[in-house]
Amino acid sequence: MLGDTAMNPNKALWEKGDFTRIAATMRDSGSELVRSLGVTTGTEVLDLGCGDGTTALPAAEMGANVLGVDIASNLVAAGSARAAFAGLANLQFQEGDASNLDGMANERFDLVVSIFGAMFAPRPMDVAREMVRVTKPGGRIVMGNWIPGDPTLVAQILKISAAYTPPPPEGFVSPVTWGVEANVRERFGAAGISDDRITCERATYVFRHPGPPDELVDAFRLFYGPTMNAFAAAEQDGRSGALRDELVALFDAQNQGGADDTVIPATFLKVVVRKP
């Protein structure tokens, strides 16, 4: 275990549901992204906020030595089971906090990847510093971060959910602030990375589900921590039906598949940091 994960409030959030049910809809895009990174045999990779291995598994299949780190013990267990089933001895999972990788050696990895993972950790300045610290000179950090106010799926799920939940505690920094380029540059700049070594561009992840959009809504309702919390809060004042209706309307409007085949693209900010 890296750092004191018990002190991280996100541990309860991500262990509450079963994100593997959502991750299953994201596998194709995870593999596609990893193929674009030039991973080769022997590349040392850290996948931070790895879930059950949507990007860690394809990286290991390409020959990299991969360590997946996640705050949620259930996702670490699920990833370990997937690695064992695939026979990937070059892929290990362990529990840890992206904002405190205490016990992890400096300059250990050629590539640090965090796709919709480290963005949810508290203390974003610490997250940037830790990612830079464990990256080798000449190595890269690649993040995928949801963008606040973006009209596509996940930003809208989070926006709708927030309208049904109590205000966050004082001092809370929204995860989607990682989707703002100026914030990315400020955070990595404070960690010693010059502006010219940071690139940001919009890219797309696609959610695929072999069924109608309302089934995918129910997967988010039952298994995705933020929407689970929103439904729990909405239930308290009799608004859970309204929340589900809003989400079904969103999913229906954005679905590019058929009535019984859900295909929904979601825009994110792809960040690449090159450590000198």
Rank of each mutant, 00 (worst) to 15 (best):
R21I: 07
T20E: 06
E32I: 02
E170M: 15
L91R: 01
N255I: 02
M143N: 14
L111F: 09
D47P: 08
G258A: 12
A232W: 02
Y205D: 13
Y224F: 15
N106F: 04
I193K: 09
G192F: 04
G139F: 02
R208T: 10
I193N: 09
N145V: 07
L243W: 05
T41C: 06
N106W: 01
G53C: 10
D237N: 15
L247V: 15
P168Q: 05
A266N: 12
R35Q: 14
I160Q: 11
N229F: 09
R187Q: 08
A259D: 14
E201Q: 15
E246R: 07
A182S: 15
G87M: 04
V263E: 13
A182D: 14
V69E: 11
D195N: 14
T204C: 00
G63S: 10
I160T: 15
E201G: 11
K11V: 14
L48T: 00
A24C: 04
V112F: 14
A98K: 07
V173G: 04
P137I: 01
I264A: 09
H209N: 13
A230R: 06
L111S: 11
L269A: 07
T135V: 15
E15V: 02
K275G: 02
I22F: 10
A219S: 08
D18K: 13
T20H: 00
R202W: 05
G3R: 12
C200G: 06
M7A: 15
E130N: 14
K16F: 04
A89F: 02
R274T: 14
R82N: 10
G42K: 06
W14L: 13
G179F: 06
A163C: 08
P276I: 05
G149D: 09
F251E: 00
S194R: 13
A190V: 02
V127L: 03
G79W: 06
N8D: 15
A86L: 12
T199K: 05
P265G: 05
K11D: 09
R202Y: 10
V69K: 11
V206K: 05
R123C: 02
G211F: 04
V134G: 12
D70W: 03
T20I: 01
D97W: 02
A24T: 04
N65A: 13
E130Y: 03
G49N: 02
R133T: 11
N106M: 08
A232V: 07
F223V: 01
A121K: 10
K16G: 12
V184D: 06
V76A: 09
D102E: 15
D126I: 00
G63M: 07
T267M: 00
A72H: 00
D28T: 09
V248R: 11
D52H: 13
V132Y: 11
G241R: 04
D150A: 07
E130W: 04
T267R: 11
G192R: 03
A12Q: 14
L158N: 03
N74C: 06
G42S: 12
D97E: 10
N100Q: 13
T25N: 08
Y224T: 01
G51S: 08
F120A: 05
F93H: 05
A234F: 03
P167V: 01
A60T: 04
